[in-house]
Amino acid sequence: MRYAILLMGAPYSHQASHSALRFARAVLARGHRLEAVFFYHDGVHNAARLASPPQDEPHLVDAWAVLGSEHDVPLQVCIAAALRRGLLDSREASRHGKAGHSVEAPFELTGLGQLVDLGLRCDRLVTFGP
């Protein structure tokens, strides 16, 4: 089946991110397709490249990035939700005159239209949130 994940919980604040990550791995391990992970609402914080959790905790941002790169799963971050929460890629950072950027590949800033498209295109869109 073709799956997609919508993640709306911030990492380390809620279980949502941990659960979504495990679900994503399970989907892939079963041989299904994971068409994309879409990060919306507080879920956009999962794309914060500067996240530096203590070493004895899972590094959720890195884990998403690894999953995205190794399995070729697009990691799509809602641009409107991201920008207002301080999550900008280098292009947006320079457009807004900011000194640094907080989102980098394999995460990509994209529009909400992608979420609707994913939901209608896939067999299952599974939501994880607080």
Binding site: Y40, H41, A80, A81, G111, L112, G113, L115, V116, D117, L120
Partner: peptide, 19 residues
């Protein structure tokens, strides 16, 4: 919270794309 606003945004975007 921003749930309502962000939910409405999703609805408006979907409608703008002709859904």
């Amino acid at each position: 919270t921003s749930w309502l606003r962000e939910g409405l945004d999703a609805a408006l975007v979907a409608a703008a794309f002709g859904r």
